[in-house]
Design a protein around this nucleic acid. Structure first.
Length: 261
DNA sequence: ATGGCAGAACACTTCTGA
């Protein structure tokens, strides 16, 4: 089974790139982030025509996540509330950043972790709180589903191999100690990054700034990840970043990442 | 230290992204 994740930076703007990529790569499941569209305006038809079942949770202008799957998913849920309760989820479900479902006996969770703006800002504080809720959510999800795959745009650089210039960006959002600690605590629930099962060297990225010719210079960040519970991690056959769509005209600033189990 | 680019919307300017 191939499970892809891709921050598309507007599904309506990227529709040709995404449908073409699906035809070439035919993943069983693709998790999308930053769809930037309300559910009533999501372009379902091109994906249905390609044989995908579509599960979407969007909002106007910002955020928005979706899971497309060749086989139907069951137990679709959105946000934290279904596992954590309305009271704990609170305002954190207002932004559409999480959608989950079950395929076979595998729990698939698609996330768009908040960006955080700047270290120390209000949005940064929101990001850290959101990650703590995600940790609580995953603890429950792993108890229910020993086979679990969470993937998406984590907006965190796991370690210094995962960014072109760690020293110059040491104070940037995405690299701070509290963010990395939050990610470590999530991983310690019993998850592993399959990309690092197969590739140990640096220089592999999933996001490049649109500005300053970052992509041709490979000035990138690896911030789009999969995390697999142990039974799936053991089975993972490969995990790759496909930079081909990043070379197209008017690309997303992120490239898709694919794990094969 | 700043700007550079791209997308969306109560749109020609502002917010957000990382």
């Amino acid at each position: 089974m191939k499970i892809a994740t891709w921050n598309v930076n507007s599904i309506r703007t990227r529709i040709e790139h995404v449908t073409s990529w699906l035809q070439t790569n035919s993943p069983d499941v693709i998790c999308l982030q930053e769809t930037k569209v309300t559910d009533k305006d999501f372009p379902l038809e091109p994906f249905i025509n390609l044989g995908y079942n579509c599960y979407i949770s969007g909002q106007k202008s910002y955020n928005g996540v979706a899971i497309l799957s060749r086989s139907p998913l069951t137990q679709i849920t959105t946000g934290f509330a279904p596992l954590l309760g309305e009271e704990t989820a609170g305002i954190f479900d207002e932004q559409k950043r999480l959608i989950a479902g079950i395929i076979d006996d595998i729990c698939i969770i698609c996330v768009y972790v908040p960006n955080g703006s700047e270290v120390g800002s209000e949005k940064y504080d929101y990001k850290l709180k959101w990650l703590k809720l995600l940790q609580e959510y995953l603890k429950i999800a792993l108890d229910k589903s020993p086979k679990l795959c969470i993937c998406g745009d984590f907006n965190i650089v796991p370690d210094d191999r995962d960014i072109h210039n760690p020293k110059a960006n040491a104070n940037s959002v995405g690299l701070s100690v509290p963010e990395r600690l939050a990610l470590t605590e999530i991983i310690e629930l019993g998850l592993n990054d399959p990309f690092r099962k197969f590739t140990s060297e640096g220089g592999h990225y999933s996001w490049w700034d649109y500005r300053a010719a970052a992509f041709p210079r490979n000035n990138g960040w690896r911030i789009d990840h999969h995390y697999l519970s142990f039974p799936l991690y053991e089975q993972a056959k490969n995990c790759t970043i496909d930079i081909a769509p990043r070379k197209l005209i008017k690309p997303s600033d992120h490239a898709p990442v694919i794990v094969e189990i």
